[in-house]
Design a protein around this nucleic acid. Structure first.
Lengths: 336, 336
DNA sequence: CTGAAAGCGCTTACAG
DNA sequence: CTGAAAGCGCTTACAG
């Protein structure tokens, strides 16, 4: 028993498959009686037309690619949830890829999505593609996909590629400022390597706030890891063991915050008692537990929604100029 | 500029598209010189063949459907991560659907995946399909997809459908037993509605342990919600306010645990000081924070891996008899 | 309102 | 080792 086709339906209804296609797509007037007969047969047989055949014939598809570096990080989980809500409402289908921040996997995912002839791409690049050569290559790959792409969270300036980002600069600026206003001057930042835009943005906001307050930044307080928990944990251990250690710390994503907490706990210390902390991103579980973590709030689910909406818009109006969307961040302080 | 096709490559190489197809698929001997020439052109043009056309022609696909009720729950995030690892290693592609525990969305997702002619299905049903009629209908739908399906975490006994599940019964049994051994006799369980298999399994394990210890179960301690945090929170509030309240509680998933914690905290109470708790599933964030939560451990990522491996196996050997896999659970106790 | 026919971009049995 | 041709399951311009 093989899959039933439009031809089977046509045979049973005594019409041509063109007519069946027309009732399937509601694309042209069909005699109501015939239409009814066909519909009955379709339902009785549970016929579902092949998207593959339809896509080939129409030279398009309703499939969207979704590429992120860390699908099991709640940050991307929230983004995904936002995306899927809109995907469902628009009868699209989503292909998910995970890259582990690894360029090879990133490129491989892109190639696979090209093979699938996706209709649009939602993309958080694994790396920054920061050298001119890398960037040019990526630009070419994306262009050859011949489909709109919307970047999420990680910015790469590429012609014709829009994106949705958070205003991390001001988030960091305001967090740093808040710490300063509470009397802190020795403020550390646990960041990722500065060859990443995201890291530079965050560092810049932090630096600007220090500068505006006339505080000389201490390079020893400027830590660079990779946004993973284990790295942040190692960095934090060193930081906390310093002779002249900071009185406040800013962490640059949810994993970093956890790494810091872990190191702090192992020393039998607590925040804010022993050291102040503001983290990037709320950690839901801690919030529920009444753990009063200060954080810079970013609505990841909203980012997902905005990104897919922008993508759909671009699919509808291919010619329209692209424009980035920057989402606000808010600093939430319990106690410093 | 439209997508380049196998015909374009053939023209440029001065061969037929059959030959190009052969080098693309390595399906038949091709003269090394010709092969080389073709390969050079393919690379130069960045030609990537259309999966759509290939699928239609071969009447198959390399796409796997993944349907879960709550994609942003870390439990399913972990499963997804495990699945994707194996998917990548096998050059398959994954279509993700979220159902919010809603039957209509569930059925719609299944239909969409049928339309896509997926090669296999990884499926955590939104509901139990427990009436004979519902079950029959689901069975028919799955059968009509004409593709192997592997159930994850939620069991439905259906002909030809295998699954990977956790041994929740013994997890619950052992957790309950541990509490009893620590002197507890008034033990509550915050569960989901008993019309769900998952809930019955868990209840049964709990009841069996009570029975084996000669403890008469108190129906007032048997709470039924829906595994969501807000419901668990409401139930917990009532439970904690009871005149003759339990001295220990077992929660039946990660969200339930959080709901309970929230209610407890609002009363200014703590565990294990004021009441003992064993939750189902580790909560990573709490663990990292050094929060000593007792839990029944289940490896969700492992479940994902095993499920996709089973699916691939079934794709390879369609005739083979299906056999369920039950994964062990372990009770992890800090302090009761 | 309806059908015959061409076409979407591949694969593959067949013949040479 | 290679090509012509049929076929996968749809859509759609064209003609009636």
């Amino acid at each position: 028993m093989t899959n039933i086709t439009i031809q089977d339906i046509a045979n049973e209804a005594g019409v041509s498959k063109a007519t069946v296609s027309r009732v399937l797509n509601n694309s042209q007037a069909v005699d109501p009686i015939t239409r009814n007969r066909i519909q009955t047969i379709i339902e009785k047989r549970h016929f579902v037309p092949s998207a593959t055949a339809r896509n080939l014939s129409k030279r398009t598809s309703d499939t969207i690619g979704f590429v992120v570096p860390e699908i099991d990080n709640p940050f991307f989980g929230d983004i995904l949830r936002g995306v899927i809500e809109i995907i469902d409402a628009n009868n699209l289908t989503l292909i998910c890829c995970n890259t582990d921040d690894n360029m090879d996997k990133d490129l491989k995912a892109l190639e696979m999505l090209k093979e699938q002839r996706v209709r649009g791409l939602l993309y958080t690049p694994a790396i920054d593609y920061s050298t001119e050569e890398e960037k040019k290559r990526l630009g070419k790959i994306l262009k050859e996909m011949q489909t709109p792409v919307v970047l999420m969270d990680r910015r790469i300036s590429l012609a014709d590629v829009g994106g949705v980002y958070f205003d991390d600069y001001h988030g960091m600026y305001n967090a740093t400022k808040a710490l300063i206003e509470h009397g802190h001057t020795k403020i550390a930042i646990i960041n990722a390597s500065l060859d990443r835009v995201l890291a530079r943005d965050r560092r810049d906001g932090y630096m600007a706030a220090l500068k505006d307050a006339g505080i000389e930044p201490d390079p020893r307080y400027n830590l660079e890891g990779n946004y993973r928990m284990t790295q942040a944990y190692e960095l934090s251990k060193k930081l906390l063991a310093m002779e002249d250690r900071p009185t406040a710390v800013i962490t640059c994503n949810n994993r970093t915050s956890l790494g810091f907490y872990k190191a702090l706990r192992e020393r039998g210390e607590k925040t804010p008692r022993d050291i102040a902390l503001i983290g990037l991103d709320r950690i839901e579980e801690l919030d529920v537990m009444g753990y009063e973590m200060n954080y810079i709030e970013r609505d990841a689910k909203e980012l997902g929604k905005r990104a897919i909406e922008m993508l759909i818009n671009r699919m509808a109006f291919p010619g329209k100029a692209v424009r980035d969307v920057i989402l606000d961040t808010h600093v939430k302080i319990y106690k410093i």
